[in-house]
């Protein structure tokens, strides 16, 4: 039984659509994994999906909408999620560094306080002894 000519064209077009979306998403990716800002993957994926769909299915509105939805979803699932994860890691790293700086500052401050306290105490003891000697 032979497939109808129309059905084999649709299958080919869907394969091409998938391929184009994949290439478009690969183009959005940067070296760190994910996009520079959250949302770019979704928007870029949707645009690429719509464009690819138009190229394959022609000026079909529903075809472009489906392509945009598929591309947007794929972009969100991959690139934006990576970008969000990276952003969270950066925020956590920044928070850790800030906490470390605060701890270093407090430790340094405590050492200085202790040093000053000892100097004052040394002075007090010395003065007390001098008074006893002279008194």
């Amino acid at each position: 039984m032979r497939k109808p000519h129309h059905a084999s064209h649709v299958g080919l077009r869907i394969t091409l659509l998938g391929l184009l979306i994949g290439l478009a998403l690969a183009g959005c990716e940067n070296t760190g994994g994910g996009t520079a800002a959250a949302g770019i993957g979704t928007v870029g994926g949707a645009a690429a999906g719509a464009g690819a769909s138009r190229a394959i299915f022609g000026n079909s509105t529903s075809g472009m909408l489906i392509g945009a939805a598929a591309g947007g979803l794929a972009g969100n699932m991959t690139l934006d999620r990576q970008a969000e994860n990276r952003r969270i890691q950066e925020v956590e790293a920044s928070r850790d560094a800030s906490a470390r700086r605060q701890l270093d500052f407090e430790r340094q401050r405590a050492l200085q306080d202790e040093e000053v306290r000892r100097e004052i105490e040394e002075r007090r003891l010395f003065d007390q002894w001098q008074r006893e000697r002279n008194g």
């Binding site: 306290r117 000892r118 105490e121 040394e122 002075r123 003891l125 010395f126 002894w129 001098q130 000697r133």
Partner: peptide
């Protein structure tokens, strides 16, 4: 001098006096 000795002793004393 005795003054230097007293100052030196004060340094040692306050270092050892952990509970202030």
């Amino acid at each position: 001098s005795e003054g230097e000795l007293a100052r030196d002793a004060a340094v040692g004393f306050s270092s050892l006096d952990k509970d202030r």
